[in-house]
Design a protein around this nucleic acid. Structure first.
Lengths: 218, 218
DNA sequence: TCATCAATCCATTAAATATCAGAATAAGCA
DNA sequence: TGCTTATTCTGATATTTAATGGATTGATGA
């Protein structure tokens, strides 16, 4: 009996290693960044706005939970998710959080509905329209992330270059902008810019990680 | 810019509330128990082998993360999962842990393969056999849990009563025993007992929570 | 070989968490 | 009404974790 308890404790403790990895806001942000493709420690630190040392120590936690892998390329060490299922779990966790936590819902509403954005939410019809060229799907993430993976039919204009590259976008069609996911503000900013210029632009909450979850557990 | 950071921090912090709820072995055990149906604090404490006070404080954490709900019935307060998606997330998390963590794989092997158990893993063929009556699917959990929900075609004999009720089981067919899930040892014990009595018994790792995840994200 | 850069390791402090004991509620019962 | 039972709340303590600064490693390139 006592022995059974010890075994059980051991088992749950192992699973809790995964839970702990998902228990820190900074680590979640790093996971979301890694969903966009492999990155160096320095890049991750810059994009998450935290120090390299702190980034390194959080990445160490993620590595010890076997959620990320590293590879040295010259001077740099690249981190990547150990498996697609890690990205899936991130999506699952933040989706559950959005379903359950009122505070989170309120914060998200504040972002999205400030300029009263319409949010595209029907994948099939969006893809159908994109295929026919009725809408332009616009990826505003840095181009390396676009090159790593992007939504079908999407074209890439990183947010920083958008001001200079308006000319590439047609004014007679709706522009659907997306970025890293619902907690990334780049698409929101892009939509604001585009509207200022007279485009009809809407904001897609989902990023590639959210998109590639095939099945919603209903 | 600074404002954007503050918003982002807020968002990830909210999601981390869910992560933190899954970051403690004791809380994971409570979640697994609640996957079997609603239970009082006392019952949860007894079944997780921890004090009522500690159980209460862990349940408080889960309640604050909005993962569980309470309902008073007379003297007792019943806890239940706030949504099926909480059970789904538990399955997702422990499945990822089993995929990634070698220590966990080793510990699980020690349990399951001690008596060289065959593990039933093909749901469709198991259900087909159960429907035809070629195998007996046996639920060895306490009967309240069976009454709350159970696998198709399963019959209930709680582990404690198994010794007295061997007569109810046919010796000419395979018995497939299951319990709360892969970290519950009741089915393992049941299989050991049954084999001792000359039954051909095998152990199904999955419980109702694992079973009811319809789609594996591949 | 030495200087440089990227990243980690180590030691320290501050903050958060787990656990336990005792007091406090809240409902049901006598 | 007061007593009992189930549960939570309030502190107190020990452990764990987050964050930071200084020293260290490992590969690169002059």
């Amino acid at each position: 009996m006592k022995d059974a308890r010890k075994i059980k404790d051991l088992l749950y403790e192992q699973v809790a290693r995964i839970g702990k990895a998902f228990a820190s806001p900074k680590r979640l942000e790093l996971i979301e960044l890694l969903c966009q493709g492999e990155k160096t420690v320095e890049t991750l630190a810059r994009e998450a706005s935290i120090s390299v040392k702190l980034t390194s120590s959080h990445l160490r936690e993620l590595r010890m939970a076997q959620l990320v892998e590293t590879e040295r390329q010259g001077k740099n060490i690249f981190y990547r998710l150990a498996d697609k299922s890690v990205a899936d779990l991130w999506v699952q966790v933040h989706t559950l959080a959005e379903d359950r936590l009122v505070d989170l819902q309120l914060a998200l509403q504040k972002i999205a509905s400030q300029p009263d954005d319409l949010i595209a939410n029907d994948r099939d019809s969006l893809m159908k329209a994109a295929r026919k060229g009725e809408v332009v799907v616009l990826d505003v993430r840095p181009s390396e992330e676009y090159l790593n993976a992007h939504l079908p039919f999407a074209r890439s204009i990183p947010l920083e270059e958008l001001r200079q590259r308006f000319a590439e976008l047609p004014k007679d069609r709706a522009i659907v902008a997306y970025c890293r996911g619902p907690y990334c503000l780049m698409a929101v900013d892009a939509v604001a810019l585009l509207k200022q210029e007279g485009y009809s632009a809407i904001h897609l909450r989902e990023g590639i990680a959210e998109w590639s979850i095939t099945s919603k557990s209903v």
